[in-house]
Structure formats: C-alpha cells, structure tokens
Design a protein around this nucleic acid. Sequence first.
DNA 1: TCTCTATGTTACCAAATTAGGACCACGGAG
DNA 2: CTCCGTGGTCCTAATTTGGTAACATAGAGA
Lengths: 246, 246
Amino acid sequence: MAITGDESRSGEIESSGLRYQRLSAALRASIAGRDFPPGGAIPPERTLAEHYDVSRVTVRRAVDELVNEGLLVRRHGAGTFVVDRVEKQFAKLSSFSEDMISRGRVPSSRWLDKTGSFVTPDESLSLGLSPGSGVYRFARLRSADGIPMAIERSTIASYALTDIDAVVDSLYAALDKTGHRPVRALQKLRAILVDAESAAIMDIEPGAPGLMIERRGYLADGRIVEMTESLYRGDAYDFIAELVES
Amino acid sequence: MAITGDESRSGEIESSGLRYQRLSAALRASIAGRDFPPGGAIPPERTLAEHYDVSRVTVRRAVDELVNEGLLVRRHGAGTFVVDRVEKQFAKLSSFSEDMISRGRVPSSRWLDKTGSFVTPDESLSLGLSPGSGVYRFARLRSADGIPMAIERSTIASYALTDIDAVVDSLYAALDKTGHRPVRALQKLRAILVDAESAAIMDIEPGAPGLMIERRGYLADGRIVEMTESLYRGDAYDFIAELVES
DNA sequence: TCTCTATGTTACCAAATTAGGACCACGGAG
DNA sequence: CTCCGTGGTCCTAATTTGGTAACATAGAGA
C-alpha cells in the first residue's frame, strides 16, 4: 500500500505533497482520532515504514515534525509516545514550577521571608511537634513570565533541613537532600477575597478573588514535615484535575 | 490505500506499546472492575508474572505505575494491596451528596431549571455533538442542612437520558441506567466573585468569593456526555484532595 | 550533462525494555 | 521461636527500539 499513485478517493486533497508530509498528516490524524492511546507508544519506526511502505528515513522525518509540534515524545530504546496532557495536569496541583513550565511560561520567585523561629501553639498541633521546637519559615512571591501569580508561605520542621540557607530554589529539592521529602500531601482549598497586604504584594486590587490552598506534606512514617499556605490569584490561575468515578 | 486520517484498519498497529504499560492497564481494569477487592491483596508478583507470561521485572514496573497513581500500596513481606481510600478522595471532589453526608450534614436540592433544548455552537464543540443535536439542561441549588452551598448547572447529551424526567434525584444514577455514566472526568477550577444573580439564589452578598468548577464527564469511548458548571460558596465550602508526590 | 533534492537501502551504535535468575529482608502463621 | 511466602535488590544477557551515518537512486530543473 504505497502512498504514491493512489488517488483513488475523490476529494483527497491530502494526496499531494511530499511523502513525509503526507505521512505526518496521517499520523497526526491518528493521534487526534485516538487510534494511538494518549500516553502510549506509537508503532516503532520500522513497523510504520513497513506498514506504509516507505523508508525509515521518511518515517523519521514525518515523526520529527510531530515531535517538533509537541504531539510526540521520543524515548531512545523505548519508543515514541503520544504526549499525555491529562496525566501531567494532575501533578500540576502540587508543583508551581512544573505547572508553569508545562504551560510554556517562565517561573520565577522572590523571597519575602526566610527565617528560623519556634512553633506557635497552633503549629505545634498541626505539625505534631512539641512546643518550643524549631521551625523554618519561608515566604515567596511566585511569578510566571514576570507576572505575580501566587504567594507561598511554608513552615518546615527544623529537623528536615540542615540550615536555613539550604533552600535556594526548590524547597522540595532541599527536603530531598535530607531524606525528608514528603511522600504524600493533603490539600485543603477554598475561595477567599484577597486581603490588602497580599494584594499589594501581587499588585492586584484588594477584594479580588483568590484561591487559598493549605497543604500538609507527610513523610512515609506519617509525620508532618511541611505546612504550606498558598494564595493564588483567581483571575489568572486555573486548576485542572482529572478524576475517576467509581 | 492512501494514508489518510480515515484509515481504519489499524489492527496490526494496535498491539503495539510497551509490555508493562499494557499490563498495568490490565491490572487497572481489574482493580476498577473489583476483580481485586478494595483493601485486599492482589496476587503476588511471581504469580502475576506466570499468569501473564511476562518477567517479574515487567510485573514490578506495571505495579510501580499503579503504586505511583495511588491505586496500590506495597507492604514488604506481606503483599501488594488495593487502596480503597483513593476513590473516596476523588469521589469527594465530584459528588456533592456523598461529600455532605461524610461531613455529617444533610444534603438537599432545589430545581432551578430542567429543560430540553438544542446545543449552542459553543456547546457542540465542547460536547462533540453536531449542531442541532438535542441536550438536556439541569440547574439545581444544592444545600447542606438547609443552607445554600452551591449552584450546579449541567448540560447532558440527549442520547444519554431516556427523557427529561429520568433525573429525579441523582444525575449520575440516571446516566447509569442508560449506560452512559462517565467513567472519568476532567475538572477545571478557579476562584471568582459571585455575580448578583447567583448571589441572590444562594442568599449571599454579591461580590463574595466563590469557587467555579467546570467538569466534563467522559464515557469509556472518549465521548463527552456531561458538562457541569458548579459555583460553590467560598465562605462555606472547602475542597480536600490528597496527592502523592513523585 | 550537471546539480540539487527527496527518497531509499544498508549498516552499525546507543539506550531502554524484557527475561531469567539469585539472594536478601520483612511479616505473618504456626 | 522457626518456616515460608512476600516484596526489594542486584546481576547478566537477549531483544527491541530510536539515533546516526554512508551511499545509492530517481526525478526536476538549470
């Protein structure tokens, strides 16, 4: 079944042009039509070459186009995969940086606070620490493409970090180094009105809608190591989640 | 045969993909189908390897995926177990009634709208219906202990319901009867200010914070059967979600 | 004729998956 | 306590798959 010389279908405007372009168009249609499952592998190049009766060179050029378009991802030794947007989006709920990057934006941060302190009675309950225990407090303004998007305020049990300057960029990376990276987290989320102070920091109107997210990060042994309050701008940030009904 | 999008004979192609991905899909189906009881153990890795005629390496990789997804939990020396916690967490995010009951509150509803109509051009795109197709529209005020909590506006493809009065209490129960209950859903969530009309219905101040959730329910074959916009009161409703860091 | 481009053919390299096995560490049952 | 089944880890080897290069062929156009 060659692609050339087969214009049997009337109205097939796709049958003109270069072979690899026609092939990539066909593959694009197969992806859009879910012939290849999202997240799954497409047939190997050699199989495609045989199936469409073209050379592997042509297949590679066709696949190259789709890789450049971001529809496919190659993994050396494994296969070529249809990008699965949905699955990644769930992880977005937790990581600001990853989320922004996957949206094609450039994340950045500005430190608002970075201090060592002692737990308040309130925190000692939440973190499960004895009163008088040490904690680190971090606050950052999170931006995307230079536009303020959220304020993150974290409280970390002191045993989880070597010192306060261990956190340079990623909090979780620093926790990872001491083996205290949370393995699961519980998030609580609600809509609020942004207070004057936070509004000033994010350069928006006070009284604008905001999304308050409280996260508690748990270690494998059940201890709470992290408490983070994030305030997201309601007018500029959407959360996406996939769920499975049972 | 030209390579165009309508190339339907992808039989040879379909069995492609990585072994462990196919296996994890099979296991996922077994879990969803209650072949493995929730909370119970799945067969040991060596048994699975023999049963599916793959190596234990492959089994472990397949199980790894499900563990990362939170569907399974490994216990060294004991076995690998189906987690029943996850479904509840996910379901909480989506089902108003269940959520309220689990909080010890009494859920109730008041119908605001219940009509048959035709798709708008906007909806036909979202629902994947041809223009002119029929849809049902439902709108309800959702309350807990008699206190208004949310407004739910649903648009349902007409093929999914026998008639408009099929929905008496639970929308999903009605969809279940025709075999068109969504198997998964994609939710989009953002903070907004409640408009005057919705505020009046929920008996709150206009300009109060609210949580807007757009949900699209997918059938197993990928069709969108349900589109629901829910507006929750920000001052009275918290969303809880558990996530697993990777 | 000569040159350029698209495509085909062949060969080999590099990386990931898969197979199959061995052994250890943990937990439960007796 | 011991025994045994289970997951956790490591190893070697074969297989599959993408990555790359060299060279050949056919057609279009100067």
